[in-house]
Each structure stands twice: as structure tokens, then as C-alpha cells.
Design a protein around this nucleic acid. Structure first.
Lengths: 114, 114
DNA sequence: CTCGCATATTGACAACCTTCGATACATCAG
DNA sequence: CTGATGTATCGAAGGTTGTCAATATGCGAG
């Protein structure tokens, strides 16, 4: 076999190039946590609704959009809340959810296109 | 209780505002699939290494970075490959992985900061 | 072809995720 | 307080994921 391109190698194992270190474990965990929060189609759709609506959206409206039970939707909202992507405030008996402003930029970019 | 802000409501259930529709299910699933690929700290770190290295990186170099068995690293690489985020080519007995150019923009943005 | 090395695949297991029904909690109307 | 409604939590069932040891595959050297 032929050795890897000469310009990427100098006196080391025959396969190896110079490798930059990975993201530190803490930072990687933090990123992974956010990705995990969006790693479900239902949660992607929930967030997309919140993004498209400028104003906070009532849970009952969100629940009506999916063929899922109310506890399940509540669970997904909790996952998004725990990840810091969304938050809510009560008005009377209703809860209104919105994408947290600190996270909105990232969420919009991550969901955007690509 | 007091009704929600008057300006966001007209003749509907007392909790509801006008809600935009969610992202279509197909698109949401596609997004979720990509997020799921990065929903693990090890995979985030692998991708970060590939991003930081301009050139493709040998599997043995990647494996050496983590306290995981070789099959486990191989599994993570497969997950990233199946999600379309990375690809590889063999040179002799070695496999060199890289972030796919089509995905690099999104990956960089998603991993970036936020 | 046969051997040795790098990587991929398989099978198994524990942990976790999504979902549901049942139930609890919160808030308002009466 | 009592009842009705909206939302959250609990417990359990079933599927998925991350990990490993064992094994298979691909490739070059001899």
C-alpha cells in the first residue's frame, strides 16, 4: 500500500496526521444536551410553532396540533424547558410557552435550513 | 380570572391566540434525525475534531481520543455517517473521516456557540 | 495463499426514551 | 368549600440507544 499524502505527515505512525484536540467534555455535553432536546420530531414541531408565533402559545393550542395525549405533550414541553430552550408563564389556568430569547438565535439557526 | 391580552384574541376559545402551523412532519423528522446524530457527547467531540482538522482524520486517531472500545467508536462513526454529517474514504487499511461539505455549514453553526 | 493489522458488524445487556392511563395539582366560577 | 377545567406528575409498557466482547471483513506484506 502507499503511504498517505506526504504533505500531511512527518515522522509518526503511518496513518496519522496532526489532530487537533476535541471540544472539552463539558462543552460537548452541554451541546449534546441541547441537541437531544431537539432529537424528536414532535419537539422540533413544537419549537417551530413557537418560533413562527411571535407571541407565547397556550398549551392547549400546542396539544391540539398533535395526535398525542396531553401528558405526552406536557412531557415534551418539560424536556424543552429542562434544556433551557423554552419557558412558560401562567395566565389564569393556562400556560403560555415561548422560545427563550437567549436560545432563540441558536434554535433558529439550527432549525433553519442546512 | 382575566382573559388574555385583548389584542391577541378575537372570538375564539378564551385561551387561544392565532397559531401558525408547525413544520411539516417530514421536514421535522429530517431535522430531528440530524439532531439525534449529535445528541451524544462523544459524537459532538468526534465532529469537533473533524471540523478543527481541515483534513480527513484516521479512525485510529479518533479512537485514541476516547476511553471507549474500538467497536463503540466505529458505531458512533456509523451513526454520523447514516445521518449524512460525515463521510470517509479508505487509503490502504485506514479509513479517513471528514465532515461532508454539504453539512459542514450547518454543523459548524449548530456546534458553534449559542 | 496466508498472516497481521485496521475497521466494521453482530449479539447481548443495561440504561434511557416515548407513550399512555391514572392521578395530582392549580386556578377560577359559583 | 365544591365542582369544572387546564396542566403536571407518576408508574408502567415497549422501543431505542450506548457499550462491550467476539467475530467478520478488507487490505497490504511476504
Amino acid at each position: 500500500m502507499t503511504k498517505p499524502t506526504v504533505e500531511s505527515i512527518q515522522e509518526r505512525a503511518p496513518c496519522c496526521t496532526v489532530t487537533a484536540p476535541p471540544l472539552p467534555e463539558a462543552a460537548a455535553g452541554e451541546r449534546a444536551r441541547r441537541f437531544k432536546a431537539l432529537a424528536d420530531p414532535t419537539r422540533v414541531q413544537i419549537v417551530s410553532v413557537l418560533l413562527r408565533n411571535g407571541d407565547p402559545v397556550c398549551v392547549c393550542d400546542i396539544t391540539a396540533l398533535f395526535p398525542l395525549g396531553q401528558p405526552t405533550v406536557s412531557y415534551h414541553l418539560k424536556v424543552l424547558r429542562d434544556a433551557g430552550l423554552v419557558d412558560c408563564h401562567r395566565r389564569g389556568p393556562w400556560c403560555y410557552y415561548y422560545v427563550r430569547p437567549e436560545a432563540a438565535g441558536w434554535v433558529r439557526a439550527a432549525l433553519g435550513s442546512g
